[in-house]
């Protein structure tokens, strides 16, 4: 079973995000960068499948030089090899551009299964995995919390509003990991040592044969015009009251009479 996991490096979710001077990007100096949390579920699931069935787990990621840290973390968790698309021409690509590059790599390597996080917590676009599946012409199942492979068949639980749908398909497929799929392992110290020696290939846009006119910040279809902070709230009104009953009465009065929400 050859499994490829799509990984993105993102700012830690506890980070304070600030807008940079250009007004269209964020300040990156003080950020702590991590593997996208949903991609950790994807890596963990790939490792569990390999442990049960044998095979290889390849980590595929795109981004600037520091992205290698995210790939090494996944290798330290136990993945076998990494592929890093690192090319200044590709930087700032939108979801379609990134997907075309990832798909170009995948067209040249064997795989039975592709797993990705259900969204990246920086751009919150929910798009790259589905677009990669489209460009490869394989089925997608998004927001998966359980999977089971028997021979060439896969059975998955997909989260839908109000419950789950149980879905079956023949491999190869791409599925995206939702919280609840598993508890990702931590990289062990020996794992971290071994990761340093695992193969990691670097690819450029030229290597992949993708038209440079399809990628990069200049060729985005979705163009960021301005970033802004969410509107701030009026300062909080602290509810007064001698005891819980008075606090409750005053709060419910405000919600009913002033906010008119109950």
């Amino acid at each position: 079973m050859d499994i490829v996991v799509l990984v993105k490096q993102v700012p830690d979710t506890e980070s304070l995000i600030q807008i940079a001077g250009d007004g269209v990007s964020i300040k990156t100096d003080d950020l702590k960068w991590v593997i996208n949390p949903y991609d950790e579920f994807a890596v963990e699931e790939a490792l569990r499948i390999r442990e049960a069935q044998g095979g290889t787990v390849t980590i595929l990621s795109m981004g600037p030089a520091k992205t290698v840290e995210a790939i090494r973390t996944a290798l330290a968790m136990g993945a076998d090899k990494g592929i890093h698309i690192n090319d200044p021409i590709a930087e700032g690509s939108d979801s379609l551009g990134i997907s075309k590059l990832l798909a170009a790599v995948l067209k040249k390597i064997p795989f039975d299964l592709i797993i990705a996080g259900m969204r990246a917590v920086d751009g919150d676009n929910y798009q790259v995995a589905s677009a990669v599946a489209e460009f490869l012409g394989i089925p997608q199942i998004t927001q998966v919390t359980k999977q089971e492979i028997t021979g060439k068949k896969i059975r998955l639980n997909q989260v839908v509003e109000g419950g789950v749908a149980v879905i079956e398909a023949d491999l190869p497929v791409l599925f995206t990991a939702q919280r609840g799929l598993n508890e990702p392992r931590y990289a062990s110290l020996p794992g971290i040592m071994k990761a340093k020696k695992k193969p990691l290939e670097i690819k450029t846009v030229g290597d992949l044969g993708v038209d440079a006119g399809q990628v990069g910040v200049k060729n985005r279809k979705v163009k960021i015009a301005a970033l802004k902070l969410p509107p701030t709230r009026k300062s909080v009104m602290m509810i007064k009251g001698e005891d819980p009953a008075a606090l409750a009465a005053n709060l419910v009065h405000k919600l009913h009479e002033e906010a008119k929400v109950i």
Partner: peptide, 13 residues
Amino acid sequence: MYGGKILSDVKID
């Protein structure tokens, strides 16, 4: 974006 920490105005080509 960033889980609502930032709002982004975008145009589409």
